[in-house]
């Protein structure tokens, strides 16, 4: 039962999982990073307080985060069909992954940016920096290490979520684990996929942390 067909399937599963996690994380940041920046600057002690904008973003982020991913996955099927053309497979899984991850990412970005020393921001202001300059040349640069650490955490979490999408035909290692391990009782294949997921997670985690550490000049 363990033949080249199974090996090929697992190899493809690995590639699909990497594809889903990396693309979803990237797109998640495409939406989550600006949202996090806006949350930071519109907050009451931010660069440009705007209670209405903050409340709206805050509400969006909390509502999306409070819907369990598995339910979101099903809720978003019409949208996924609209964007991708079908509701199964790894590309289709990216849609709910991005929508679910973006508000988490925004919150993590917000917390990273709020760690930046207020004194450094004040110094930039005293030099005549505009708010846009403070965001791009102070906040995002000074928070770099924390942003990368959080991106690593996001990537790991999205990897786990992508496996969950396997229950509804999402493709990737999770899909294989559910189909073979759960429906066909082929425990060996399930164990292999779980081990592979752990290995992938370790690779993502360790390389992310290594990059963060390399780019940090604060403690040396």
């Amino acid at each position: 039962m363990w033949d080249s067909q199974v090996t090929n399937m697992i190899l493809e599963g690995i590639l699909q999982t990497i594809y889903m996690s990396v693309v979803s994380t990237f797109l998640g940041y495409l939406f989550g990073l600006p949202m996090g920046v806006l949350l930071t600057i519109s907050d009451k002690n931010g660069l440009r307080p705007n209670p209405v904008l903050y409340k709206v973003l805050d509400a969006i982020s909390n509502v999306v985060r409070s819907v369990p991913f598995l339910i979101l996955l099903i809720l978003l099927i019409p949208l996924t069909r609209l964007v991708v053309g079908k509701s199964y497979g790894s590309t289709a899984t990216i849609v709910p992954l991005v929508i679910s991850a973006a508000p988490y990412i925004a919150r993590m970005v917000e917390s990273s940016l709020k760690e930046v020393d207020a004194g450094v921001i004040e110094a930039a202001k005293s030099m005549g920096a505009s708010n846009v300059q403070i965001v791009f040349k102070v906040l995002l640069v000074e928070a770099r290490t924390s942003l990368i650490t959080n991106a690593t955490i996001a990537l790991g979490t999205i990897l786990g979520y992508s496996a969950m999408a396997g229950t509804v035909g999402g493709g990737g290692l999770g899909d294989i684990a559910v189909r073979y391990g759960y429906y066909r009782y082929q425990t060996d294949i399930m164990i292999v996929t779980v081990v592979l997921l752990i290995v992938l997670f370790q690779i993502f985690q360790n390389s992310g942390m290594a990059i963060a550490k390399k780019l940090d000049h604060k403690k040396k």
């Binding site: 450094v120 930039a124 005293s126 030099m127 005549g128």
Partner: peptide
Amino acid sequence: RRERREISMIFQHFNLLQQKNVIDNIVF
């Protein structure tokens, strides 16, 4: 903001950019 360029400020806790080296801080 333009006027502030002519009025520099130094601080008790220095407030240097931690992720930039000395020369890039001065250039900032």
